[in-house]
Nucleic acid binder design. Sequence first.
RNA 1: GGUCGGGUGGCCGAGUGGCUAGGCAGAGGUCUGCAAAACCUCGUACGACGGUUCGAAUCCGCCUCCGACCUCCA
Length: 502
Amino acid sequence: MTTALHIYHSITRQKELFIPETPGFIGMYVCGPTVYNDVHLGNCRTFVSFDIIYRYLQTIGYQVRYVRNITDVGHLLDDGEDRMSKGARLEKKEPMEVAQKYTVGFHNMMRIFQTLPPSIEPRATGHIPEQIEMVETILKNGLAYIKNGSVYFDTQKYIDNKGDYGVLSGRKIDELLSETRDNLKNQSEKNHPADFAIWMKASDEHIMRWNSPWGIGFPGWHLECSAMSLKYLGEVFDIHGGGNDLKFPHHENEIAQNMGSCQCKGAKYWLHTNMLLLNGKKMSKSDGNTISPEQLFIGNSEHISKSYSPMVVKFFMLQCHYRSTLDLTDAALLAAEKGYKRLMEAYKWIQSVNHPGTKGDAGQDADIEALIEAAHLDMADDFNTPKALSRLFELVNKLNSLKDKHIGWDQISPATFENIKQVFSLFINDIFAVDSDVEGDLSGNQDKSLLDGLMNLIIQMRNDARLRKDWATADLIRDALKENKVELKDGKDGSSWQVTES
RNA sequence: GGUCGGGUGGCCGAGUGGCUAGGCAGAGGUCUGCAAAACCUCGUACGACGGUUCGAAUCCGCCUCCGACCUCCA
């Protein structure tokens, strides 16, 4: 932990030196998915980004408690996506059934993207008492009022007391006033249009409902994150993350709730990931500009020409900084796929090779050590994955030169070579976690030795043919293998092979 | 209309007051029986217009285009 970590804080809008509340420990909260629908690719980008951050913080020595919630209340209205049947009781889907289905799907997708599970994954419905308690505290502090069984946060009073509503989003409360839509529910109940519900009275049709001091209802949309981060991370914790689109009103309200209840600001650093676009536009189901992770993986979409493996998609995401919008296009994915393969081939090569000599060359060693150092510094500079990747590619260049004997073994010392090995392993396995796709990796299981043996035999037979200058046989073998998705490459040290995808 | 963030070479994308990533594609070359891969070389970009400066694509102003948010939203 020698390098100073700088992260971009959304409130101050600049990079700041990161100082954890407790040395050596980090509390991180990320707003999780609402499980009423299949995971959206954009969600995946956000959670992949925070997974990289989580992994990176651990590799530099922090003990991290990563809390990511599951939102299973608040948006589950019965006119939602899953259209609860109006028929018999058994035909209706229990809200929990819906939530369970999509939670499982979400977890699956996270596994496919090789993300680590968070330390704690609390559900909003599992924390109703905590939320009620928080509402009570806010009421007690005089920053909320009750209207017809609902409780609203009093933004006016909050501003009079503290005056910082809008720090995150830059909104001015007076401007919010003029833009109010009259079709908003219960708008007339509010004292001020900027006020928001922290407890909602349940109408008769509303299927999720709990008893509370204010009658039957359900918690407000923004309350769960305040209550759960407080419970698991305390009044002050280090990092709060989420998608850019949650800044307002969700995060803004969260801050207000925290301040309004325990007078604590919650997160010290707010991080926001930027949006994933499809062909330059926001993904939207209504106008067909959308693609699901599954469609991407099986190539079933008008927007792409072929399928892309999860790791290619992940690599594609890592080539862009988390704070930038990323435009997903077929051409960009194609380019990412090739780059990914190149990186991984170099990685596999270095894993399988040991330095044969003892000497090195000061010039090359210094070059390489500088690249390695730079890659670490890039990550410490607001998690700059694209820049760190660029260093890795420069190392790939060195490795390929070494492989092709343009650089001699006597020019790179064993220690430096070992360092390259380590940095590749660190980034590709531990930080980026793009080492292999979950399925379809033929060389990854116990069949490997059998396959290796067979391939060695075939390669040997072909080499005999080549020595006899029997090109017809040699080419026949190579072509036949290619038909079976095995690609042969004749290098200076003999032939190598790999299984090709699709 | 308001808030915020952007417009970088053929494409994707970093970055930055002077040293100007990386990937993909393209051109030429090396290697190779051929192929593939790899390696070497090349392109010299920062929306428009003003301004600040010895010097800006990087700072300021204005214009323009794009995106997100302002309503559940990663």
